[in-house]
Structures are given as C-alpha cells and as structure tokens.
Nucleic acid binder design. Structure first.
Lengths: 278, 278
DNA sequence: ATGCCTTACGTTATACGTAATTATT
DNA sequence: AATAATTACGTATAACGTAAGGCAT
C-alpha cells in the first residue's frame, strides 16, 4: 500500500507547481521527492505524471489521483482531530446557563469537585440550552424551567433575587421596595452578559435606555462614578453600601427566580455530589 | 501524520484479537507491531488501547479509531482500484452489439486498426446498448436503429440476410424461397447467442421449439448430424453445401437488416477509420 | 507451563542528501 | 546562466528482529 505522506507530497506538487518548490516546502531534497513519486506510481501501478526532460506535469491519472488524495487526507486529518476532540470532551465539563450568577457559583464548585477536569461555561437562550444538553454539547445546564424529563435529572440549585442599587440622592432611594415599572423610562446601567434577565428588563421597562457594559470592572467604576440606577443580586457579594449606595428590594415576581441544574441521569453518579447553593 | 500501514495493523489487531496473532498474519514480529501501535498512539496524541500486563484491548478511543481506519483504508483501496480501472478503460475498446455476426466482424477489424488496444465485446438488448453508450461503458455499439442524436455518430456498417439451411430430404428444401411462418411448428436448431434474432424467431414462429446450443462447434456437429432446419447468414463463411445442405432464402423483411455503428462524436477521429463491411 | 505484551539492543533496509548529468528557458 | 528533473552513490535514520523479562491464565 502507498502511504499518506506520499499523498501529501502529491498535493504539495499540485500546490507549488514544481518538484523543486514542493520539495523545498516539504523540507525534503528534490531528488527524494522525485523518487517518492516514482514509488507512488509504482505502488499504484499507474503513471501520474507526464515527464519531459526538465518538466513534470500531472497527466489524466494524476489529476484523478489528486481528487482521491484530497479526500483521503481530509479523512485522515478528521480522524486525528475527532479522536483528540473526543478525548478532550471526556476531560471537560461544559456548562450552559441562562444567567451569569449561578454559573459563577457552579463553575468553581465543579472545579473543586473534579480537580482533573477542565470546566467550560457559556450563556445561551433557553432553547439553545435544551438543544445543547440533548446533543451532549453541555453536560449540565442551568435553567429556570423545572421540567421532569425521562433520562434527565432536574434539581433545584439556588434562588436569585434582584435589588436596585441607587445613590442616596435618587428620588426612589428611600422607598422600602419598588417595582421595575417604577424605573421605566430611566437610563439604567447593567452588565451586558445577564442572559435572560435582559429580556425581562426590556419587557418591564420598555421606555428605559440600557447602558450595557461588558467589562465587569469597568462596570464597577461606572457605578461608583455615576448616579445611574443599577442592579444587584443576592448571589454575589458586593460593597454597594460602602460605595454610598442603597439597595432597594424589587417586588416583581419575575426577579425572584429559582435556578435548576439539569443533566443526563447517566451523570448522576458524578453530578449528584453537587450541593444546592442556598 | 500517521501512516496507512498502521491503520492496516490496527484493523488486523481487531480482526485477530491479539498482537501476536495479528503480527503473525502481517508477517511482522510481535514487538514490531507493539511499537508500531505505540507510535500510532503517539502520533494521534491519543491512547487507543487498555494495556494490562499481558493483554491489550481497544479502549473507547480505539473503537472509535477503528471506524475511521476502515473508512480511510476503503478510500485508499478505492483510489488504487479506480486509477487502475481508469487506465485499463483507456486501453480497451468495449463493443456492445445486438447480434453476433457484425460483432465478429468488427472485433478483429478494430484489433487491426488499434493494435495496442484490447477489444472487448458483448451482446445486449437495444435498451442496454443505448444506456451503456450513454454511460461510456461502450465506446461503440452495433444496432439496427439508425437514429441521429446530438453528440453521436451513427453510420451504416453492414447488411445481414438470413437463410434457412435444410437437408435435401426436407419437404421445403426445393423451394426457391420461404418465410419464417412456413417453418412455424418445426423444431429448429440455432445458436443461443443470436441477440435480437431470437426475439424475431419467437415472434414469427410461436409454435416452434428452439434447440439452442451455446457452443458454436457443438452446433456445427449437430447440424451435420441432424436433419433439423437451422439458419445461415451472408456474414459468415460456411460450408453448408459441402455438408449436403441447401440454403433457401427467407422472404421476411425482418431478416434482412442493416446494422449501424454508433459512437460518440469525440471518437470520430479514431473510429472514423472503420470501413463499412458490405 | 504456555501465551501474551513490553523493553532493550544490535542490525538492516529503506529513504535520504549530495553530487553529477541532461535538458529547457 | 539559471531552473528543473533524473540517476548514481554513499549515508543515516527509522523500523525491524532477536533476546530478555514480567505477568496472567
């Protein structure tokens, strides 16, 4: 049987036009490449080139061979890549989440539970999360939908409540509680990667303008420097009080949510260890 | 990149179960095979086997790799086979014919015109001939249909007239001419590979019984030894008279046919040289 | 005790590079 | 003169076989 390296050489000759150039690119002497192609032809039992004295061109067979060679080389690279991806996927836990806060809690928790696995996480829409779980692109998803499904575990993970952070001078700063509609129309500062929260904000405050910042430390600076209302959550520690801001609870039921972990039953042995957060 | 021989070895290990057995079948020492698989794993960057002290089995990756290896090996063999078939097809002229006699004339004619080509011929139905010409399985077909078609050349090749060969004692032996229907009901001796002629015989002599012989020399013997009517044609030399048989011309228009050669216009340069036979 | 796999080591075979040759531009 | 391919020849590297060792059935 011929060898893959010879097919690679064949493709290089096509790519670079001459034996000399191809040999150079392949880090091979030109006579070595010449002989390698002679061996390939011998092995295939077929000529691949038209040989003039100082010129070599693909003949009809060679052109046909190039097509086959491309396919075989592609399949070979695919084999290598797929195997490596397969191994990597076995040592990686992929999380998909609908919101950032529970993801920030779960990620380090998993790293502690499975020290030799790498943990990868991303935020997606509810539909994409379910699809990703189905297709095994996520091993765990964090969702607000508590649905029992055959073959899946769905268990409560944590609750999140939102607050509004207001500077003392703000007209609403002294209220015991407010609803999102009270803020409608005002410019509001928020983190851009808030997942499904953003949909709720747009729905409840259709007249507000949202200043979305995707850098979390830049957001901190903006909060300190501005008088703009912004959100806080029970799930992340904060020092808003030190910043001379007050937290006012929100009354809307939509901003008091329960997050659920969802994963395949076959992972229960591993992921059963994950403890609920609050 | 890994090499095809390593994939072949991988498949052999799967096939024969142990390194030792596989090595033996591959005409290789067992340590050499062991190291070759270690190199394959190293090259892929992935383990393929579970290794106990004196036992080696495919792991999850290895099982996956086997699938890829099968595909790649298949594609490689396909490459080799297809290239060889392609070369062979270029040095072979395939003829398809609806009847034997013109084929027997054309075949040696082509061999003389193209001494370094091999000539292959077979008989098929009209439909299969057209299909084969379309799909380039035949370079030339011999047919009775004279149809002009774009991209195709269709030219007269020869005419064939059938005669009935009868022993002198036969009731019809003295007739100047007869029609096929005169013979209907009689047992008739004929060559089995007569192509479309057989369809005509069955149609014109529905009550006859046909003694089909597929060996042409055996047929000659039968003709000499029996008193059965049989057919003769203007296209092949015969010695029926010496055999004490007479030839009576047939009147049916169906047994006076013109054969046409049909081939792609692109072959006109080569096949234009073919001369009509009569 | 036999079968099976790995490691170690010396050897060989195969593919390599250099140099020489020929031809084309 | 420069570029390009093949052939010839000595060399080097990579894969091989043999031998040795360990483990399991």
């Amino acid at each position: 049987m011929f060898e893959l390296i010879q097919l690679e050489q064949l493709l290089a000759i096509d790519k670079y036009g001459t034996l000399s150039k191809a040999a150079q690119e392949l880090n091979l002497s030109q006579p070595a490449l010449s002989r390698s192609m002679q061996r390939l032809e011998e092995e295939l039992g077929v000529t691949l080139f038209d040989r003039q004295k100082n010129k070599i061109t693909f003949n009809e067979n060679g052109i046909l061979a190039l097509d086959y060679a491309k396919k075989i080389m592609f399949a070979s690279k695919e084999m290598k890549d797929s195997l490596q991806a397969f191994v990597k996927s076995k040592s990686t836990i992929s999380i998909g989440s609908c919101a950032p806060a529970p993801m920030w809690i779960l990620t380090p928790q998993l790293s502690r539970l499975f020290p030799d696995m790498s943990v990868q996480s991303e935020m997606k829409s509810f539909e994409e999360l379910e699809k990703g779980l189905e297709e095994n692109n996520y091993q765990i998803i964090i969702t607000t939908k508590n649905v029992n499904q055959p073959g899946m575990i769905c268990k409560k993970y944590c609750e999140e409540n939102l607050y509004v952070s207001l500077p003392p001078a703000h007209p609403l700063a002294l209220r015991k509680s407010i609803s999102l509609s009270d803020l409608d129309g005002q410019s509001i500062l928020l983190f851009s990667q808030v997942g499904f929260w953003f949909d709720i904000c747009k729905e409840k405050m259709p007249n507000s303008f949202f200043l979305a910042q995707d850098n979390i430390s830049a957001l901190d600076e903006l909060r300190k420097a501005s008088a703009l209302p912004t959100f806080a959550t029970n799930l992340t520690k904060n020092n808003y009080e030190q910043e001379n801001r007050g937290l006012v609870p929100l009354t809307d039921s939509e901003v008091h949510v329960t997050f659920y972990l969802k994963y395949r039953k076959s992972y229960e042995k591993q992921f059963g260890k994950i403890k609920a957060f609050n």
